[in-house]
């Protein structure tokens, strides 16, 4: 499907990330194993395996270390959510799984603008890419149910250079009734 990245398409996601970081194309990727784990083929030195390791490497290459968190605490949160992305979001299979994840995220994001709170980080980018195909399939009612996720997602997709060719997902607040 055009404009959507499916789960496990790490390589495509990494080229999106490269572009959003303002890096020139030049890195070569391949995928490995059944789960198509992305591998970064380095010209010198050993190759890098795994989505998060490569993503962190790219951020450093782009000299945008602030995307990994400014304080020690923020850095830890970014790490934790990158791990969450790979171990939880990418392993979603049933509708029930998706509901659980969205519910968790929804309550987590209730008091936050970004994943780490007040700063935009790599965790936002990778969660956005990872959730895109899931959010795209939600119904209007579900989007409204997971209001905090929707707000965050809508915010990130409007962040410059992040969405690129991915489809823009429409969020509407149901105006048929008033919440206040």
């Amino acid at each position: 499907m055009a404009g959507v990245i499916g789960p496990g398409l790490g390589v495509e996601e990494l080229s999106l990330l490269e572009k959003s970081l303002g890096l020139k194309k030049g890195n070569k990727y391949s995928s490995q194993g059944e789960r198509k784990t992305p591998v970064l083929q380095a010209n010198d030195g050993p190759s890098l395996t795994g989505l998060t390791s490569i993503a962190i490497h790219l951020v450093k290459q782009a000299k945008k270390e602030q995307l990994l968190g400014n304080t020690a605490e923020e850095k830890a949160i970014v790490q934790q959510w990158l791990e969450y992305r790979v171990t939880q979001v990418d392993k979603l299979s049933t509708k029930e799984d998706i509901r659980t994840i969205l519910k968790d995220l929804n309550s987590y994001l209730e008091d936050k603008v970004y994943i780490t709170g007040n700063n935009f980080t790599l965790a936002d980018i990778l969660l956005y890419y990872g959730l895109h195909h899931i959010i795209a399939d939600l119904t209007v009612q579900e989007k409204e149910k997971y209001l905090n996720v929707s707000r965050w997602f809508n915010h990130i997709q409007h962040y410059p250079d992040i969405r690129q060719h991915l489809s823009s997902i429409v969020f509407i607040k149901n105006r048929l009734y008033n919440t206040h």
Partner: peptide, 17 residues
């Protein structure tokens, strides 16, 4: 404040992104 609260339910900022 209640109005502000419901206005911000689906927005991160008052205007735009």
């Amino acid at each position: 404040l209640q109005l502000l609260n419901s206005f911000l339910a689906d927005k991160s900022y008052i205007e735009g992104y």
